[in-house]
């Protein structure tokens, strides 16, 4: 029996698609419908109201923590991407070392909470960083501002999500053949020129994807900001969690989750539009199987 490539592809993808439909699409649709329902003393009441969205959009606290979450997400994703690109370049074009990649990924084998507490130990008033600065005579008393600050949140989140970003960047750079770089060099461009004129435009979509996926994971994280950020560590995730756990107002929590979802999508389109407007992201042409 000869099956077309399309049919084989569909059969192979079917289990994943079915899984995602059952465990992601359907629950998301249910959550979306909840966002129009109302809540009464821990009970979700079928309804069709926009109150949950209006309440969220008119809440100063919601915007304050959402802007904070977006700011933490953008900062962490930008720093992670800047740090991940040289590592990805080295892994794809220079070393091709799988061992190096595994060493980077090995940080995932440590507990998330252990890493947060480790950073507390490093950045604390009596922590390693302050001890070093005091020993070197750079400061004459411990710096309180290292811990429970935006700095502490960002440095910890970069530590947690950088390996993930490196993985995505490495994957996107792997698609660009070294022959293209060799050709650019043969035509007289410098190494840096080859990176910006060949690698960056070709990998731009992948890099934008790496940035956005890192952003989404970081902006949704509410444990690290709360444990290391002090009063600057409140994010939308915490508000949403409180609606589900503390007040039992699932509709309001669902509405806030979807507002955050829309903000993430909007940020993605803004990022891509800016990239295209500046020429950093080039729209790639689709090549059909016949290569025409």
């Amino acid at each position: 029996m000869n099956l077309s490539r399309t049919k084989i592809g569909a059969i192979l993808a079917a289990p994943t698609v079915v899984y995602m439909v059952i465990f992601f699409v359907v629950p998301s649709l249910i959550l979306f419908s909840y966002s129009f329902w109302s809540s009464e003393s821990y009970r979700v009441v079928p309804d069709f109201v926009f109150t949950n969205y209006l309440d969220s959009l008119h809440s100063a606290v919601f915007w304050k923590v959402t802007i904070n979450a977006v700011r933490i997400g953008l900062t962490t994703a930008a720093i992670s991407l800047v740090l991940a690109v040289p590592v990805g370049y080295y892994l794809v074009y220079v070393s091709r070392s799988q061992t190096m990649l595994y060493l980077i990924l090995i940080t995932w084998f440590s507990s998330y909470l252990v890493r947060i507490y480790a950073w507390r130990t490093l950045l604390g008033t009596n922590g390693v960083l302050n001890a070093v600065l005091l020993q070197l005579g750079i400061v004459d008393h411990p710096v309180d501002a290292f811990l429970f600050s935006s700095f502490a949140v960002t440095i910890t989140l970069v530590h947690i999500y950088l390996p993930f970003c490196i993985l995505l960047v490495t994957s996107s750079l792997s698609e660009i053949k070294p022959d293209l770089i060799d050709a650019a060099r043969d035509l007289g461009t410098s190494s840096l020129g080859a990176f910006f004129r060949v690698i960056a435009p070709n990998a731009a979509n992948g890099l934008a994807g790496a940035f956005m996926l890192t952003f989404i994971l970081v902006a949704g994280d509410y444990v690290t900001p709360q444990m290391l950020g002090g009063s600057s560590g409140q994010t939308t995730g915490l508000l949403i969690a409180d609606q589900f756990r503390k007040t039992g107002n699932w509709p309001l929590g669902a509405a806030q989750a979807f507002v955050m979802f829309v903000i993430s999508i909007a940020l993605y389109f803004i990022l891509v539009s800016l990239g295209r407007a500046t020429g950093l992201i080039v729209k790639r042409r689709t090549i059909n199987p016949k290569g025409i």
Partner: peptide, 8 residues
Amino acid sequence: AWNEFKAG
């Protein structure tokens, strides 16, 4: 109000 308090 508690969330607002915590957010500073």
